[in-house]
Amino acid sequence: MHVSISVNGEQVSREIEPRQLLVHFIRETPDLTGTHWGCDTSNCGACVVQMDGQPVKSCTILAAMCEGHEIRTVESLEVDGQLDPIQMGFHEQHALQCGFCTPGMLMTARALLDENPNPTDLEIRTAISGGICRCTGYKNIVSAVRWAAEYEAAAKQEV
């Protein structure tokens, strides 16, 4: 079947089998291998992308179901060399070691701050509970999201 999906604001059109999962559709697109394919069972959260602004697990969505929806991947965060505050927070707070979970964590955290600009630590932990990180113990990820929230709040005040 033919599908045309908006990925990071650009239409990606391709012939696919109906059974193709969104994560593979994305990763088979040139320059879009940032989304990681992990457990394949909707447990680990490495494959999280945003669908119409909401974080979703792309290993458990058919690409065919995404036509007409806006998909955003980790590649959309950095714009013209400028990192998203979430990415800056991960850098500042050392929120990754191996980095495998990071794309999913970033997209989940970005969606959280878009909905709730000043989350509590518990709200951050709940939001990222669909992602598994085997390196950091989560503490630095929580610190990174908090750092980004504070950075964005300060940036807003300056305007």
């Binding site: 909707s42 959260g45 999280v48 909401q54 974080p55 979703v56 697990k57 458990t60 969505i61 989940t108 709940t126 939001a127 509970s129 669909g130 992602g131």
Partner: peptide, 9 residues
Amino acid sequence: IADPVVRNR
């Protein structure tokens, strides 16, 4: 029930 990301779908 599962996690918030799964609950979105």
